[in-house]
């Protein structure tokens, strides 16, 4: 095994791992905002698909990827808003409405794809931008600082989300609403409004997650192209104990192990491929079993807020 981890292999794992982690980071951090305020949205995968389609379609038609990204954000925001209406205002069972939203996104993105395009086409997505100075570091510059903007964005989102959640009054309100909405309400915080904002923001980030696939990493749209990534993103929120840094750890673990197992196969390490494919999931479950802090779960997660209900 010692000869497996040569420098090019380690660099390759880092490069692919960062790319694989990108959509998970957007989707999971968006979900973390929603869950910290007490709403879990199982429709992330459906929003990602709609984001992937609208980003791709608008980007292709206008020839401007920024319009595509904006469209993906807008569509994600609207779908998040829809989830908020159903789960916050109408107080529907969150699990079921989330699954409904997932199926809606899966079906609608496939339908739109079929009606607007004759088949799978690829476009030229966001190009890698080498960061000055840092990009010139030998070895690491290429794998760490020569990515496209959406990849950088995903990693910058982690400290930003941490800051918002833990260092701003708004973040305090989000967590208060998720831990004890009644108490927050008596302090004059508008519980429903906070939840509307977080669920919509989560939807917008899920939209970007989808677009990161279709206009920055894979650069095409195919029906059901996420194949369940949104659900893994939700699992990562639990894995990360609802903290952006924890989510980053989970996303990197999952992605690096995935990149590693591909390298093991490429290098012809004598190792059944079934086991290699299982590895990222097995590692994630293992780490989850060891590390998860149940106490970190927002107390009001999944519970609709009724005023004056104690």
């Amino acid at each position: 095994m010692s000869n497996v981890f040569t420098i090019p292999v380690v660099l390759g794992i880092i490069y692919s791992g960062l790319r694989l982690a990108t959509p998970y980071l957007y989707a999971a951090i968006g979900e973390a905002f929603a869950q910290n305020s007490g709403v879990y949205n199982l429709g992330v995968d459906g929003i990602m698909l709609m984001g992937a389609f609208s980003g791709f379609y608008v980007g292709m038609k206008t020839g401007n990827l920024w319009w595509g990204l904006l469209a993906a954000m807008g569509v994600g925001l609207l779908m998040g808003l829809l989830m908020a209406v159903v789960s916050v205002t109408l107080k529907a069972e969150q699990g079921i409405s989330g699954i409904g939203l997932y199926m809606f996104g899966l079906g609608l993105s496939s339908l739109l794809f079929k009606k607007t395009m004759s088949g799978v086409e690829s476009i030229s997505g966001f190009q890698p931008v080498r960061i000055p100075l840092l990009g010139n570091i030998p070895y690491l510059g290429d794998v760490l600082f020569n990515h496209n903007l959406l990849v950088y964005g995903a990693f910058l989102l982690v400290p930003l989300a941490s800051f918002i959640l833990y260092k701003t009054p708004f973040g305090l309100m989000i967590r208060a609403v998720g831990q004890n909405p009644q108490a927050a309400d008596t302090l004059g915080i508008n519980v429903d409004r906070i939840r509307y904002i977080t669920v919509s923001l989560g939807g917008m980030l899920a939209g970007i997650a989808g677009a990161s696939l279709s206009i920055s990493l894979i650069n095409l749209f195919q029906e059901n192209m996420t194949s369940g990534m949104g659900f893994i993103a939700i699992a990562l929120v639990y894995f990360g104990s609802w903290r952006p840094l924890g989510i980053l750890g989970g996303a990197l673990l999952f992605s690096f192990v995935n990149a590693l197992q591909l390298w093991l196969q490429v290098l012809g390490v004598n190792f059944p491929y079934d086991f290699a494919v299982m590895l990222p999931y097995a590692m994630t479950i293992l780490a989850l079993a060891i590390s998860v802090r149940r106490a970190a779960m927002p107390d009001a997660l999944g519970k609709p807020f009724e005023r004056g209900e104690f």
Binding site: P8, G12, Y15, S16, R19, L20, P23, L213, L217, I218, Q222, N224, M225, T226, S227, M229, N258, A259, L262, W263, Q265, V266, L267
Partner: peptide, 16 residues
């Protein structure tokens, strides 16, 4: 159906 992992596989082959 996992397009994303398939893309990563191709990346790995090329890097190797």
């Amino acid at each position: 159906s996992d397009v994303s992992l398939m893309a990563a596989a191709a990346e790995t082959h090329i890097a190797a």
